[in-house]
Simulated assay, not measured.
Amino acid sequence: MSGNFRPTCKFLWRTSIHKTFVLLAGLRTGAPLWRLIVHDWTKYTPAEAPHYGRRHYGAKDDILGFVYAWNHHSKLNPHHWEYWIPVTAHRLSPIKAGAPLPMPEWAVREMVADWLGASRSYEGFFPQSLEGWDWYHKEKKKLRLHDDTWVLLARVLEEYFRNPL
């Protein structure tokens, strides 16, 4: 897969830029510094980097590889809401498979920083108001969050937009 080198490098460069914007946003959302440092670390691994690179900057012909990479990423990075949805349930668990677990506050703060950093990285600006953040209003319908997480998310967003970047 020597044709993957350039797209992978391009992807890793974009990821590094994204991480910079996540750091800036995360300092405002109150995400823990350590989480901001290790944010998206799995994107730099062979399980993800070549597949993301190929999908975003290359031939786009490895659909299954990209799906594997996304699954790997979302299940190893707790700032993704998908991380908090168990695929299966233990017989002793009162929580059913597919039911969202409550996210801890640090993960919600990093998740919001990730969304803000992605907006800056890919759209060119940090959103200035929750009302005007089109991406959030479009994606919000797809989120599967525990009720406690929805409350926490609303609080973190409200705190951030009192004084956005």
Rank of each mutant, 00 (worst) to 15 (best):
F66S: 09
N77K: 04
F66R: 13
R155L: 04
K19H: 10
C9L: 15
D62Y: 10
P32S: 08
V87W: 10
W115E: 03
N71V: 00
M1G: 14
R28N: 03
K60A: 13
V38G: 06
P164C: 04
G132P: 08
N163K: 12
Q128I: 05
E158V: 00
V38D: 12
V22S: 07
P32V: 05
G65D: 12
P127V: 02
K142E: 14
W70N: 08
T42G: 02
M111H: 06
D114S: 11
G132D: 13
S121D: 13
P50Y: 01
H51D: 05
H56T: 01
K96H: 10
A69M: 07
A118E: 09
W34R: 08
Y122H: 06
T42E: 13
R14D: 13
D114W: 11
R144P: 06
M103W: 11
T8W: 03
L145G: 09
A113K: 02
A59Y: 08
F11D: 01
G98M: 11
S129Y: 09
I63M: 07
A107H: 03
T20E: 12
R28Y: 03
A47I: 01
E110T: 15
T45W: 03
V112A: 05
G98I: 10
H39E: 07
R162E: 14
R144S: 15
W106R: 11
N77S: 15
F11Q: 02
L145R: 09
P94D: 12
E158H: 07
D61K: 09
N4C: 01
D114F: 11
G132Y: 09
